[in-house]
Design a protein around this nucleic acid. Structure first.
Lengths: 340, 340
DNA sequence: TTGAAAGCGATACCAA
DNA sequence: TTGGTATCGCTTTCAA
């Protein structure tokens, strides 16, 4: 079947391109095009399986009906779930998602932003590396619609939907404290990210709330790009810490997974010898031995709110107030911290 | 900073748009444009941060430098990992990925295919619902570049990269048989998918290879959209089966997860009373109690091969032979089947 | 070597 | 109501 264009159907039906375009865009009635002509056009289009060229359409209208999603890594379940919910939420709205992973590389992220702009995406949802202040600021200055998720720039006034990292880790740590643990290690990432910094602060606040002193030796900050090779040493050091720690807070789900693997290798009994608690979780954390007490993120809410805010900004008011949301997380208590 | 267009820079520099376009596309030399003009153009472009409008560019050239990825569900780790590897492989190639999930809905899948074509994607990677024979056939007839992954249509001659489902499950089942299990249940999905059908055949072949009779009562086929509510009953029935099964083969990672949850709820000891083995796995399956013996998929290979085949077809020969790959999987033995 | 002009396919303004 | 035509921003052919 040969491809048919707007022009073809206009010529064939001996009407103008305008008429065809109008009718096909459901603007036939409001432009008072005769019912008969409309029918002829619609029928012909359907019969010949006409589909408009989106590129031409977008170029002409200055709208691409596409929104861009930039995340650190699509294969991280946290982000893939967010992507899934974003898609779901967008379903039926006519928008398509263009996505890309930055792999935590600020330079790449910058390129992605520009590349997406070139492609005329109408808005952006970004889980930023938090190291592109300039780019984000210029988006803002251009009044370009975007919303930051998961991570934001506290120094810029933008839309964002994040979770309360501080509070999440604080709650997790307090849980351990309440169960009587006192030598609590913290395995986290090098805090290039504000989000990660917040987690450290939460950990610290919990300790201090219980009158404990913050101790640098208990905190292990791994390189985000090389944590797998560093975890062994980190865990080892915590276990050697004057008489070993009695518990560990892990700052991300993947740190928890490899950390637990490490503990098992070293034949440490969890939670008897060392209790653990995880910020965020993996699908099978409830099945793990022992089931892992975790701070759960409101992934669905993050995705849905972000979409709502973005769409509203794209379609709505030019100069709305920025929407800033810090969602709470939930501590799901399983068995990795022992019981009272 | 105001947006600058090709025209602007041509006017500003008093050269033609052609010259600008040529130079910016690195065709300055081959069109013998004076070095000086080239330099002026390049400098000006850089200084004013010129970026071409991809839409216009694509429309004009008839190329979008975009490839489409259609998968059942981006939040399924299996597919999100594939998406991640596809992205990685495409990095630097200049192509961007447009992705969408079909949610196993053939109708939606059809719409997605058409929508992507409208957007002039240059090629498609599809993990199909396997219920769109027509659409796929017409892609083929139009000589449109595409490659099927994970699931293919045996009746059509297309490019594809899949794993050997039959063999994967057969190996898993044989593992149980070799460990002395004889009453082996199989929890799978309703076989609308060829891939799923293959798994059932693999299960059956293993049994028969050991001289066992295939028994319908041992096979539970759940509805892909409602498996969560059906798993309880399925497991229950297998446990009631004349004196209970001694093991269960799960056809997907998520069935394994919820199945195991069910077994734990019912206080069944795994593997002592019931051994289990999983086709495909979740990130923490090695940490689970007990660590789950699983058939591992070559996700990375699937993604990379698919990209190679596709790019080759897009850029290379018009009428190449179809590339058909059936990759092997690997049985990783952990503890959920017990030992000899 | 450079530039004018004709597309790419659709939208939308303005007359008729 | 309908149709001609300019336009979106860039590429590319063909003359000069």
């Amino acid at each position: 079947m040969k491809k048919v264009f707007l022009k073809d159907i206009a010529e064939e039906l001996k009407v103008s391109k305008t008429a065809v375009s109008l009718v096909l865009n459901n603007k036939g009635d409001e432009n008072k095009i005769s019912q008969e002509t409309q029918k002829r056009i619609l029928d012909y289009a359907k019969k010949h399986n006409y589909v408009p060229n989106q590129l031409a359409r977008s170029l002409s209208r200055g709208k691409s009906e596409t929104i861009g999603l930039i995340i650190p890594n699509i294969s991280d379940t946290f982000y893939s779930k967010i992507a899934g919910y974003i898609e779901l939420k967008l379903k039926g709205s006519g928008y398509t998602v263009l996505f890309s992973s930055s792999n935590e590389d600020p330079k790449k992220e910058g390129e992605l932003i520009r590349s997406m702009l070139n492609r005329q995406v109408e808005g952006l949802i970004i889980a930023s590396t938090q190291q592109n202040l300039k780019e984000i600021e210029s988006l803002k200055q251009d009044k370009y619609p975007f919303v930051l998720i998961d991570r934001h720039y506290p120094e810029i006034d933008t839309n964002y939907v994040v979770v309360d990292n501080y509070d999440g880790i604080k709650t997790a740590t307090e849980h351990l404290l309440r169960l009587g643990r006192r030598k609590i290690g913290f395995i986290t990432l090098k805090p290039k990210l504000e989000a990660i910094r917040q987690r450290l602060l939460g950990y610290r606040a919990a300790l201090e709330g219980f009158g404990l002193e913050y101790n640098d030796d208990l905190v292990k900050e791994l390189d985000p790009l090389n944590y797998e090779n560093m975890i062994g040493e980190a865990v080892g050091e915590l276990l050697k810490f004057p008489n070993s720690v009695d518990s560990i807070v892990f700052s991300t789900h993947y740190l928890t997974a490899i950390g637990l693997r490490e503990l098992k290798n070293k034949k440490i009994r969890v939670p008897q010898e060392v209790a653990i608690v995880s910020f965020d979780q993996l699908a099978a954390f409830d099945l793990v031995d022992p089931p892992i007490t975790s701070v759960i993120q409101p992934v669905k809410d993050i995705a849905e709110h972000a979409v709502e805010i973005l769409i509203n900004e794209i379609e709505g008011n030019k100069n709305p107030v920025m929407v800033k949301e810090t969602l709470g997380s939930k501590l799901v208590i399983r068995k990795s911290c022992g019981t009272f």
